[in-house]
Write a protein that binds this DNA or RNA. Structure first.
Length: 290
DNA sequence: GCTCAGGTGGTTC
DNA sequence: GAACCACCTGAG
């Protein structure tokens, strides 16, 4: 077990930030997460009031405490980096334009969010499935695909779960099989993408060494991946903090608050975090308050 | 029935 | 290069 006390690390907020779809509450204060072929149970204590699932639960002055049910070795070698716990998010908040009241409020509201370092392949499939879809349904589709094509796994505590399918396994699936899982027209994209990756037309490990514009262009060679999905993969898997995915929610805010365009010049190297603060605030704050 | 949900790709002008 | 439209599905 590893205990983390950090004001700027909130699992409930990350859960609702829309960057990962295999992190779910299993009880009042416990979450479970599947990342590629790993499983992690998480307990949250003293979650601060702002933006948490239950505002009454946390006392404001208590430190936010998160318990990860893994060995210190696994934490050091994997989860620490995965949750980006080496980075100071306080610095990101401090870098926000003092004149920008909206962004400051949004950032305070979602200050426990971190940009995870998720698996590239998993994010490619996940965000192809995300198009014209809502979050509960995206989660259902990922669960169905993992159940059918992923390795059956057992966690240290006996919990059974399905690993995310490998490219090779998904490349063997037919479009008809995927349609049967209700993936719809995205089935063709998944087949094509899985094949281009297994036959080496697009090399996942080379993406890691590319800059943002280059990686974005390379990802867009895959069927079903346009600019928005490519930016999601760049941000949530490759940790390219200049990626700023613009979806319908973000566009709405940009139109209402920024004359249609985000001030990227002020946020070099952290625009992606700002995107997450805006997205989370727009979706989770009390609606009707402007 | 109709619209909408975290879009992409193809066609058209 | 902007403006259409088809595309699966399920919920409200």
């Amino acid at each position: 077990m590893v205990t983390i006390e950090d004001k700027y690390f909130s699992i409930p907020q990350i859960c609702r930030s829309g960057q990962c779809f295999r992190l779910d509450p299993v009880s009042e204060d416990t979450y479970e997460m599947i990342a590629s072929d790993r499983y992690l149970r998480i307990k949250v204590e003293n979650q601060g009031p702002s933006g948490s699932a239950d505002d009454k639960a946390g006392k404001k002055d208590d430190p936010v405490r998160t318990v990860l049910y893994c060995s210190p070795e696994e934490y050091e070698s994997f989860w620490k980096r995965y949750f980006d716990l080496d980075t100071s998010y306080e610095d990101y908040l401090a870098g926000i334009d003092p004149e920008d009241g909206y962004l400051r409020t949004a950032a305070r509201f979602g200050s426990g969010i971190r940009i995870l370092r998720q698996d590239v392949w998993e994010m490619i499939i996940t965000f192809i499935l995300s198009q014209q879809n809502n979050i509960p349904r995206i989660k259902g589709l990922i669960r169905a695909v993992s159940e059918k094509y992923g390795q059956k796994m057992e966690a240290w505590d006996g919990t059974l779960y399905d690993a995310f399918p490998t490219p090779g396994r998904l490349a063997e699936a037919s479009e008809e099989e995927l349609r049967a899982l209700k993936l719809g027209y995205r089935s063709r994209y998944i087949c094509g993408t899985a094949r281009m990756i297994t036959n080496g037309e697009v090399k996942l490990d080379e993406l890691q060494n590319m800059g943002h514009p280059e990686a974005r262009t390379e990802l867009m060679r895959l069927p079903g991946i346009g600019g928005k999905v490519a930016d999601c993969i760049c941000l949530f898997a490759l940790h390219q903090m200049d990626a700023f995915p613009v979806d319908t929610h973000i566009q709405k805010v940009l139109d209402a608050r920024y004359g249609g365009k985000f001030p990227f010049d002020k946020y070099k190297g952290c625009a992606g975090v700002m995107q997450q603060y805006i997205f989370y605030y727009d979706l989770n704050r009390d609606p009707g308050v402007h």
